[in-house]
Design a protein around this nucleic acid. Structure first.
Length: 409
DNA sequence: TCTGGGGTCCTAGGACCC
DNA sequence: TCTGGGGTCCTAGGACCC
């Protein structure tokens, strides 16, 4: 018994990471087939892309044939067409993504109580305590992969490791439709020969700096002096050294906390230079931020905006409030004030963002010493009435004069 | 050549207080 | 007149992720 307890105490941790292959494109393909389409866009030169007319023409997801011709996520459709002349571009649909994401999540829930939805197409499963119920995690990983393919028609990569980082790195190895492991004793063989840029949290900027320091592979990074890295990269240096050595003690976070910030941004259909036009956009953005804020039953103590000029330079401004807000009119008031303070009117504008942060729930809202509780309640009530009308009849039911004019144009 | 949208976390520097 | 050091909070911007 004593020995058993000791074994349980020392038991190895297992984390499984499930990652949908080319999620947006795969799910769109599955949905099309379900609706009677004869073609499987996964087998063609096809991408999910934004609306080029609205200047949002980038690749959001690509098929394997596109990938083999060098198409990468985030590049312009213009560039993608150069690589694949017969490129087919499809629009995404978030409702469809959500549907398949939910199906996968519900399926996975049978294997553990501790599952983190890391993004719409990725889940982490804490498998340590499930071992005794479902057995070897690698065998289960294969079952998960085959089940999802059979049940829902799309493929996934499944990674198995002793922590989240290793599981995630493993699922990122050869794609699609594969199971990989990255256990602690495999790190040297499977990970250290990869370029540093392959390591989770090493992006373009860090990768460039590391290469300049002659740290080229993950192995080079793992063998580097942690003190040197910390001096050079601050707290980030320690994290990258730990990741390179497969060290990660973070937990699978299965409880979804409140968001820390909420924002909405947009690229404008052409470069704006008139404040009246910009104000209309700020209002739309404020309203959509406000709607999401109130849906979560939260209040904000900070409002921020950023402006992307037509030369792609970006500038941001924020304001901390001494009282908590949630009404559209308040968000818009501060957003437009910040905008006026920030805008260099010699420059035309390509994109705008409105966001809120420092969020509090109902019980923790802050009242400034000048705020009038009666007034706040009145404002909340008014906003609630507007929200109810919009819920019932749609967002477009309540319109302002200039929104109508804009639609006519 | 053309470059979306929604997030989180970190850092440097300034303001302010003791 | 010339001047410290620590702590906290806020802001702008950058890096990273999907």
């Amino acid at each position: 018994m004593l020995l058993y307890n000791w074994v349980m105490f020392m038991k190895e941790r297992y984390v499984i990471h499930v990652d949908v292959n080319n999620a947006f494109l795969s799910w769109t393909a599955v949905e099309m087939l379900k609706n009677g389409s004869k073609v499987d866009i996964r087998k063609k030169y096809a991408v999910i892309g934004g609306d080029e007319k609205a200047r949002r023409g980038i690749v959001l997801a690509k098929s394997m044939p596109c990938k083999s011709r060098g198409v990468v996520t985030g590049e312009s459709l213009y560039m993608a067409r150069k690589k694949c002349p017969n490129l087919e571009v499809y629009k995404g649909d978030y409702k469809v993504y959500k549907k398949y994401s939910d199906l996968m999540y519900k399926y996975l829930c049978q294997y553990s109580n501790i599952i983190e939805r890391y993004s719409v197409d990725e889940c982490f499963i804490e498998y340590t305590d499930s071992y005794k119920l479902f057995g070897n995690p690698v065998r289960l990983a294969y079952k998960i992969k085959e089940d999802i393919k059979k049940l829902y028609g799309f493929t996934v990569n499944v990674g198995v490791g002793n922590n989240k980082l290793c599981a995630k790195m493993a699922s990122d190895f050869k794609k699609p439709d594969m199971v990989h492991t990255l256990f602690m004793n495999e790190i040297k063989d499977k990970m250290w020969n990869l370029d540093v840029s392959e390591l989770f949290m090493i992006g373009k900027s860090s990768s460039k700096k590391l290469h300049e320091l002659d740290i080229k592979t993950i192995g080079d990074l793992a063998r580097s002096d942690i003190n040197f890295l910390t001096r050079y990269f601050k707290s980030y240096g320690k994290v990258m050294w730990e990741y390179a050595n497969g060290i990660d003690n973070s937990l699978v976070e299965y409880e979804i906390g409140d968001p820390k910030s909420i924002s909405n941004s947009t690229v404008l259909p052409y470069n704006y230079s008139k404040y009246e036009d910009i104000y209309v956009v700020l209002r739309e953005l404020s309203m959509s931020v406000g709607k999401r804020l109130r849906y979560k039953k939260l209040y904000a103590n900070n409002v921020s905006i950023w402006i992307k000029y037509s030369d792609f330079s970006k500038i941001s401004k924020q304001i901390s409030l001494d009282n908590s807000i949630s009404a559209d009119s308040d968000i818009l008031k501060y957003a437009s004030m910040l905008f006026k303070k920030t805008w260099d009117s010699d420059k035309t504008i390509r994109g705008l963002c409105v966001g809120v942060s420092n969020l509090k729930d109902n019980n923790n809202i802050q009242l400034s010493i000048f705020s009038d509780i009666k007034n706040i309640k009145k404002k909340d009530k008014l906003q609630e009435t507007l929200d109810n009308i919009r819920d019932k009849y749609g967002d477009s039911i309540i319109k302002y004069g200039d929104s109508k004019n804009k639609e006519k144009n």
